[in-house]
Amino acid sequence: MPTITTSAVLDAPAEEVWALLRDFGAIGSWHPYLPPPAIENGPADRVGAVRVFGDHRERLVALDDVERSTRFAFEDGGGLPVRDYVSGLRVSPAAEASLVEWSATFDCDEADEPKVVAQVRDGVFLPGLAALKARFAR
């Protein structure tokens, strides 16, 4: 089962970064390639909430304010040849800054793995973390 983990140090306190990232529906306000999603099944900060991007659906499966972490699962393949895709964000204090880690685990056919890893890491995670870094630059 492949795992992808990327990270970035942001020039803002963890509490400030977490205030944005804990909102499951806010991703469209900071990620350069994702539009604002529709939220179904409750408020965006409750486990079980579903964010919808057109035909793609993601369910919030964990939200931990103490650990400053979220986990969400694809309810479909998200346009990728994957199964059991689960991703998450974690915000940790780092001196007067914060460390944001974005990770995912999933299953896929062995032949698809390099392509999927590159699409997720280079097409979603890295641009998202770069946008967060720019947003919190001082």
Results as ranks from 00 to 15, higher is better:
87 S>Y: 08
74 F>C: 07
105 T>A: 14
68 R>C: 01
112 D>Y: 05
77 G>Q: 08
118 A>H: 05
120 V>M: 09
111 A>W: 10
76 D>L: 07
122 D>Q: 01
105 T>C: 05
88 G>P: 11
107 D>K: 09
75 E>A: 07
122 D>W: 01
81 P>T: 01
108 C>Y: 11
58 E>C: 12
93 P>G: 08
87 S>V: 10
107 D>G: 13
101 E>G: 01
88 G>V: 10
119 Q>K: 07
81 P>W: 04
89 L>E: 12
64 D>G: 01
100 V>E: 01
71 R>K: 10
103 S>M: 10
101 E>Y: 03
71 R>W: 11
77 G>R: 04
110 E>P: 12
103 S>G: 08
84 D>L: 13
85 Y>A: 04
86 V>Y: 12
94 A>V: 01
90 R>G: 08
117 V>Y: 01
83 R>W: 06
109 D>C: 04
69 S>M: 05
102 W>A: 01
105 T>V: 15
58 E>W: 14
115 K>E: 12
94 A>G: 05
98 S>I: 01
70 T>N: 02
117 V>K: 02
78 G>T: 08
77 G>Y: 04
99 L>A: 06
98 S>P: 06
71 R>S: 09
108 C>P: 02
104 A>R: 02
95 A>E: 15
119 Q>C: 07
65 D>E: 00
62 A>W: 10
114 P>W: 05
105 T>W: 01
100 V>M: 03
70 T>H: 04
67 E>T: 06
59 R>L: 13
117 V>N: 00
118 A>K: 14
75 E>V: 13
65 D>C: 00
103 S>R: 10
79 G>V: 14
119 Q>W: 07
93 P>D: 09
67 E>F: 04
81 P>D: 02
61 V>I: 07
68 R>V: 03
96 E>N: 13
79 G>N: 14
115 K>D: 10
95 A>W: 10
70 T>M: 06
101 E>C: 05
86 V>D: 13
88 G>T: 14
78 G>C: 09
114 P>R: 11
113 E>A: 14
88 G>N: 12
115 K>F: 14
103 S>P: 08
78 G>A: 11
109 D>K: 01
60 L>N: 04
82 V>P: 05
101 E>T: 05
122 D>L: 03
93 P>Y: 00
79 G>F: 14
74 F>W: 13
121 R>N: 10
104 A>Y: 03
72 F>E: 13
91 V>E: 01
79 G>H: 10
119 Q>V: 12
72 F>L: 14
87 S>G: 14
77 G>H: 10
110 E>I: 07
83 R>F: 08
101 E>D: 15
118 A>Q: 11
66 V>M: 09
74 F>A: 08
100 V>Y: 02
89 L>H: 12
107 D>M: 06
122 D>V: 00
62 A>P: 02
113 E>W: 05
81 P>M: 12
